[in-house]
Nucleic acid binder design. Structure first.
Lengths: 220, 220
DNA sequence: ATTTTTTTTTAGGTTTGTCTAAATTTTTAT
DNA sequence: ATAAAAATTTAGACAAACCTAAAAAAAAAT
């Protein structure tokens, strides 16, 4: 199936939003893609006719098996290019994402597999995210500290390194516990503080010091 | 200036057609791009408002200085990616063009310059075409087509102008590839066909049509 | 110097992917 | 249970990039 850049970006965004078993909402996807909800509805109809998603009007949507296969192929390309840019071309960690966003849409299967081989079949990209292999399989989870979690990626809290009562009090206040699914919405470069969103809670603001003591795993 | 993939393809095609000092015609460009003349006219108007071409209705058109600058940047990207694909990923030389057609539209200046550096600032791509440097300068090639090569002079195959699968099949059959060292032994005036000798191979017979599509450089 | 042919442009339509504004459905709150 | 709010979808527009068919201009042929 031949997909446009736009269609690929939608597939990828849905994949990232539908972690766990939830359906994705129109508004969530609109926020993720910086587009209007009406545009999302338009594209959903197209992706449904292409049989890549389950979608019933007003009921949310999910990728189906084929959609997930496509998403993993895109993510594979993205992360391999990120690895190439950082490892071979010596780009800084934070520069690789934007360029990989463009390169990932070059979809020659042979190119991707040869690139993979050239890079030595890496398992993780420079952000610590696992790279799907030729069959769409990837290393299950990988721990990152919350301060290093890429923005707009949902993750599960899996460990808290500092166990002081003061920190636990703060965590309780922020409604964060082991197993909480959260997403870093925004980073304020002035103090590296984070705005973090937990489902069904208002966004909370977290200092860099706290973020460095919270470890998360990417939920596949 | 931000150009679409389509705009870039037009610019590139005009650049290739306007060799020497001629203006390019609508029909010639339509043939080159496999599009209808009406579509060409549409795009020419857009490129004119973007100040990349000289264009007066019915009078043909040419790239202006800025247009040539843009074209050379695109060609630089194309040829660097071709070099990367052949040299690093070990693609066969006839496979690289199609993939480079896609990669060339990723326009990060920093990416291209870092790639150039990573590759060791190559001067020629796998087809023997010169690669423009960061300033748009490139080695001038003193290429001759095989049909014009004097008899009993050895030369290196550096470019093949027609990239059709039919021609590539024929070249493989004759054991001719980029870099092959060969010598024209005899010319038959009846059909201008050539007897060509390649080291360690029996002499082969080549039609005028094929000879006109093979370019060589005198080996120093 | 006309007529014919070829080339080029214009006019109007299509698809993709976006938008705004309005209508509808679902959810939440009273 | 109903009203208010929020989420979602529909309706209608627009730009990019293509198309076909017709008109206009230029070139070639008689």
């Amino acid at each position: 199936m031949n997909l446009s850049t736009s269609e690929e970006n939608y597939i990828k965004a849905i994949f990232h939003l539908q972690t766990g078993g939830q359906t994705v909402t129109t508004n969530a996807l609109a926020r993720e893609l910086l587009a209007r909800p009406a545009s999302i509805t338009d594209m959903l109809k197209r992706l449904k006719t292409k049989k890549l998603i389950h979608y019933q009007p007003y009921q949310g949507f999910r990728l189906n098996t084929e959609g997930r296969r496509v998403a993993l192929a895109i993510i594979r390309r993205h992360r391999l290019w990120e690895y190439f840019l950082a490892e071979k071309l010596k780009f800084a960690w934070e520069e690789v994402h934007a360029i990989a966003e463009e390169l990932e849409h070059v979809s020659s299967r042979k190119l991707v597999d040869k690139l993979d081989e050239y890079l030595g079949f890496p398992k993780f990209d420079p952000h610590g995210d696992p790279i799907p292999d030729m069959n769409g399989h990837m290393e299950s989870t990988h721990r990152v500290c919350l301060a290093d979690l890429p923005l707009h990626t949902t993750a599960l809290v899996c460990q808290v390194s500092n166990q002081s009562p003061e920190m636990l009090e703060l965590l309780r206040h922020k409604q964060i516990a082991i197993g909480t699914r959260l997403e870093a919405r925004r980073k304020f470069p002035f103090d590296n503080s984070l705005e973090v969103k937990i489902r069904q809670h208002p966004a909370v603001h977290i200092s860099e010091q706290l973020a460095k003591n919270i470890f998360v795993t990417h939920d596949a």
